[in-house]
């Protein structure tokens, strides 16, 4: 198993990169409407990947456009929630010297591995992917 400190540093680095990317995208959409593509799949094959549109979704959320966010990509809601909660949780764990997030992470990992949970989630991701392709993100 991955240890606590490694997990926390990965989460913090990911959230930090996410916030920088968010600031970059929010300021960029004001000056020019063209979106910057970082997605490897999209750039190589011109087909959007399951999580394409997440940036647009989170940017819409910051402006309070909830329906626009849902139309861009529902995964944006999940990412926004994780980006809001994870740094606070990590910080509180580090200050108090506990490992509640680490225990929660392991619990959710074993929970998600159960076929009853995994198969519907995989189907949801695939449906979302098909929707992305139809929308032509």
């Amino acid at each position: 198993m991955i240890n606590r400190n490694k997990l926390y540093s990965i989460i913090l680095v990911a959230c930090f990169a996410g916030y920088i990317w968010l600031v970059f995208s929010v300021t960029k959409t004001i000056s020019e409407k063209e979106s910057t593509g970082v997605c490897v799949i999209k750039n190589l094959t011109n087909i959007p990947c399951p999580s394409c549109g997440t940036t647009r979704s989170v940017v819409s959320l910051t402006k309070g456009e909830f329906i626009g966010a849902l139309n861009a990509n529902p995964i944006g809601y999940l990412v926004a929630v994780i980006m809001l909660i994870a740094p606070v949780w990590v910080a509180s764990d580090l200050i108090r010297g506990t490992k509640t997030l680490y225990v929660f992470y392991q619990k959710i990992e074993t929970y998600l591995k159960r076929p009853k949970v995994a198969i519907p989630l995989i189907l949801l991701v695939i449906i979302n992917w098909i929707w992305n392709i139809i929308k032509g993100l």
Binding site: A14, A17, V40, P50, L78, V79, I82, I108
Partner: peptide, 15 residues
């Protein structure tokens, strides 16, 4: 699984 979801949601961590 946790890392996999992380990669899936972020387009492979921006590549």
């Amino acid at each position: 699984t946790g890392m996999g979801i992380g990669k899936l949601l972020t387009c492979g961590g921006f590549g």
